[in-house]
């Protein structure tokens, strides 16, 4: 079974055969990258994955159950820039086949039960508006209620500007829910993938019990361009990459994709709830 392929909508055969690495810029034979869990064989950059791809990697086969798939934005500000937000939403929904930028649900990881939320960066940059905030909050509440384990896989540019203050306050909502989760003694793991910045970095992503990042993932509060514009100088090599955050004490570990499932399994075994080993689908 091809691990990646279900979401490959590229029609152009040239584009379909070759891809360019975001990090080293090499043009690589796509099949080679896919065989390698979408990790660049030249520089070890971990390509962004869709939520389906993450489910394939992390969750035991046929054990994933999606929760709240039908929540969608109602464009609370009636926002319009050069295009209308609601049109952009509709178009993105059509393109991605998703309602918004996160998939939430539960499943088994090596037969251990987890509640899981996975961002889709290709849905408006994985931005957090009311829908993402609500689904994460429900997921946290459900985890607390069932004292299960929580894993959030982030990939987001931050808050969704088009929903204005409602987006900003999703940071408050998710963190308030996490403060309750702390009381329930449930394990919360965050897996930060490329990129995790802005409002997502400055809320639930940065305060997990265990924070894991993928190699070379960009992680930070402000985007690199904003910073270099502000300080008027070039940023140092490796700035805001996962390894930089590890060095500065902001995350617990940088884990290669090929051992991520094993690592998460180990963390659940050591810290989490190992009592539940089945899912009702």
């Amino acid at each position: 079974m091809p691990l990646f392929g279900s979401d490959n909508k590229t029609k152009n055969s040239l584009d379909g055969l070759w891809i360019k690495c975001n990090n080293c810029g090499e043009i690589i034979y796509k099949k080679e990258v896919e065989k390698n869990l979408k990790v660049c064989p030249k520089c070890n950059y971990h390509f962004r994955l869709s939520s389906e791809e993450w489910i394939n990697i992390l969750i035991d086969q046929n054990s994933f159950h999606e929760l709240w798939p039908d929540i969608e934005s109602i464009d609370p500000l009636d926002f319009k820039d050069r295009t209308r937000y609601r049109d952009k939403l509709k178009e993105t929904q059509k393109q991605t086949g998703k309602k918004d930028a996160i998939v939430t649900g539960y499943g088994l990881i090596n037969e251990l039960f987890v509640h899981i939320g996975i961002f889709d960066f290709n849905f408006m940059g994985g931005s957090m508006g009311s829908v993402v905030g609500e689904k994460i909050t429900r997921l946290i509440e459900k985890t607390a209620e069932e004292q299960s384990n929580l894993l959030i896989v982030t990939s987001s540019g931050g808050a969704r500007m088009q929903e204005g203050i409602f987006s900003l306050l999703q940071m408050a909502k998710t963190n308030a829910a996490l403060s309750r989760l702390n009381g329930s003694k449930s394990l919360y793991m965050a897996l930060l993938t490329d990129p995790t910045t802005g409002g997502v970095a400055a809320s639930f992503a940065s305060i997990a019990d265990i924070i894991i990042a993928e190699p070379k993932a960009l992680i930070g509060f402000a985007g690199p361009r904003v910073i270099s514009d502000t300080i008027g100088q070039k940023l140092p090599e490796g700035f805001q990459r996962a390894e930089f955050l590890l060095e500065h004490g902001m995350i617990d570990m940088v884990v290669e994709r090929k051992v991520i499932k094993k690592t998460i399994t180990q963390i659940i075994r050591l810290l989490g709830n190992t009592g539940r080993r089945t899912v009702q689908l």
Binding site: N175, A176, G220, A222, T230
Partner: peptide, 26 residues
Amino acid sequence: GAYPGIGAEERGQAEAISASILKLAS
């Protein structure tokens, strides 16, 4: 806004903001 700079990122601007929000919640 919170300062977007090198030192701020090195010392965890995102974590500091998040932890402050978390503390206020309880």
